[in-house]
């Protein structure tokens, strides 16, 4: 698992790849948190290269979403593979984090 970040306009784009499971979810949390600043107001989670996520990983996504909401920031996810999207849907996360087909569309929706 690896998290890369870049800024596009006013959005912070976090791109996670590999696997997030019960063995590395806390590393995933640290990696995400270290990239987010308190001044960020729009965060896009690009999951195109995420091959696996379990409830341990979704728990981290929820914690980050809660942090962002507290600081008044919006969050969106994009480019989910079919199985990752299924996990988001059966956990109801698609109702609290908007899912977009592409990074451009997610950035556009947040700006």
């Amino acid at each position: 698992m690896n998290v890369e970040s870049r800024r596009e306009g006013t959005s912070l784009v976090l791109k996670a790849d590999g696997r997030v499971d019960g063995t590395n979810a806390s590393e995933f949390q640290d990696a995400m948190k270290s990239e987010i600043n308190e001044s960020d107001r729009a965060v896009v989670l690009d999951l195109q290269d995420l091959t696996y996520i379990s409830s341990a990983g979704l728990r981290v996504v929820l914690l980050i979403a809660k942090d962002l909401q507290r600081q008044g920031a919006k969050m969106a996810a994009c480019s989910l593979s079919d199985p990752v999207r299924e996990v988001f849907v059966i956990s109801g996360f698609d109702k609290i984090i908007p899912i977009h087909d592409s990074q451009d569309s997610a950035i556009g929706a947040l700006s």
């Binding site: 379990s54 409830s55 979704l58 728990r59 929820l62 914690l63 979403a65 809660k66 909401q69 956990s91 609290i96």
Partner: peptide, 10 residues
């Protein structure tokens, strides 16, 4: 988001 419990999904 703010009310969503952490965990219980497994």
């Amino acid at each position: 988001i703010q009310d969503r419990a952490i965990g219980g999904l497994g």
